[in-house]
Amino acid sequence: MKLPLFPLNTVLFPGCRLDLQIFEARYLDMIGRCMKQGVGFGVVSIVSGHEVGEAPKSVSQIGCEAQIRDWQQLPNGLLGIRVEGGRRFRVERSEVQDDLLLEADVTWLEEMPDQPLTEEHDDLAALLGALSLHPMVATLEMGGEVNGQQELACQLAYLLPFEREQKQVLLEMDDPSVRLARIQVLLEQLQGEMLA
C-alpha cells in the first residue's frame, strides 16, 4: 500500500494525539488529498535531516498511521490539524516525489491481542492518571482511564520525557507487556538521573 509520509522529530503511537501546524505546500496538498479521500498519512521519525525544506536524508523504518481528527485555521494564519495514531507500519521502499513529498510502500504490522491490566500495572496506570492532569496532556484529551496494556503502554511511551530513539524502540516492540516492562526500566533510569 502507498502512503504519503510526514517525517517529524517525534514518534507517534497508536491511539495518541498530536497537534500539527501545516505551512509547507507539499504538506498542505497532502492534507487536502487525505481529507478529500478520508484516509490518513504516515508519521515517521527523522533519523537524519530536518523537518522543514528538503526531504530528510533518512527516516525510521517503523512508523504510525496518522488519522486527521480535527482541523482549524490558527490565529497565525496556518492550518492546524489534530491527528490520532492508528496502525503501525513498516516502510518497505520510499521515494521523494517532485514536490519533495516522501511517499512509501508500507506493510501494516500485526498487533498482538490486547491483555487486561493487572495489579503489577497499578503504579504505571496511576502515573498515567497523574500525567492526564498536566495542561498539555489535558489539551490533547489523553490520559486517565485506559482499557488494556496496549493503551497504557502507548500513552506512557508517548507522553513520558524519553529520548526520541528510546521512543522509537518502544514503538517497534510488538508485545504490549514487553513495552510496559521496558517503560518501567526507562522510568527507573530517569529517576536515577534525577537523583544523581
Rank of each mutant, 00 (worst) to 15 (best):
I68V: 14
V146S: 02
E141A: 13
S48K: 14
V44L: 06
A181S: 09
V47H: 07
A25I: 06
P4E: 09
H134V: 08
R90V: 12
R179P: 01
A125T: 06
V52A: 10
E92N: 14
V11R: 04
T118Y: 09
L195F: 07
Q166W: 08
G63H: 12
E51H: 00
L140N: 02
E172T: 03
L74R: 15
G15E: 05
A181T: 05
V52P: 02
F162A: 04
V52L: 09
V169A: 13
L78H: 12
V59D: 09
F162V: 00
E120V: 10
S48Q: 12
E151L: 10
F6C: 08
R164Q: 14
K57R: 12
D175P: 03
D29G: 04
E92K: 15
T139A: 13
R90L: 14
E110T: 15
L124N: 07
Q155K: 05
N9Y: 11
S94I: 03
L127W: 02
M194P: 01
Q67K: 15
T107W: 10
D99C: 04
G143L: 02
L3D: 07
Q155R: 10
V91I: 15
L18V: 06
F13R: 06
C154K: 00
L124G: 07
L156S: 04
E92Y: 09
G49Y: 04
L28Y: 07
Q189M: 13
E188C: 05
P116G: 10
D175M: 06
E193A: 08
E172L: 11
C16S: 15
E54L: 07
R17L: 05
N147K: 09
V39N: 07
L78Y: 12
P113F: 12
L195D: 04
A125C: 05
D98R: 08
G40F: 11
F6L: 11
L124R: 12
S48W: 01
R87W: 01
V137R: 07
E165D: 13
P56M: 08
G148C: 06
L102F: 08
L127I: 03
G80Y: 13
L74M: 15
R17D: 04
V169P: 00
R182L: 07
G49F: 00
L127C: 06
S58P: 04
E84G: 00
Q189T: 10
P113D: 14
G148P: 04
A138I: 01
Q149R: 10
L28K: 15
L171Q: 05
V178L: 12
L28Q: 13
G77R: 12
R88V: 00
G192F: 11
D70H: 14
D174F: 04
I62V: 15
L12Q: 05
L128M: 07
P113Y: 15
Q191W: 10
G80M: 11
I183G: 07
V44E: 04
Q21H: 15
W71R: 13
V52E: 12
Q150S: 13
L100V: 03
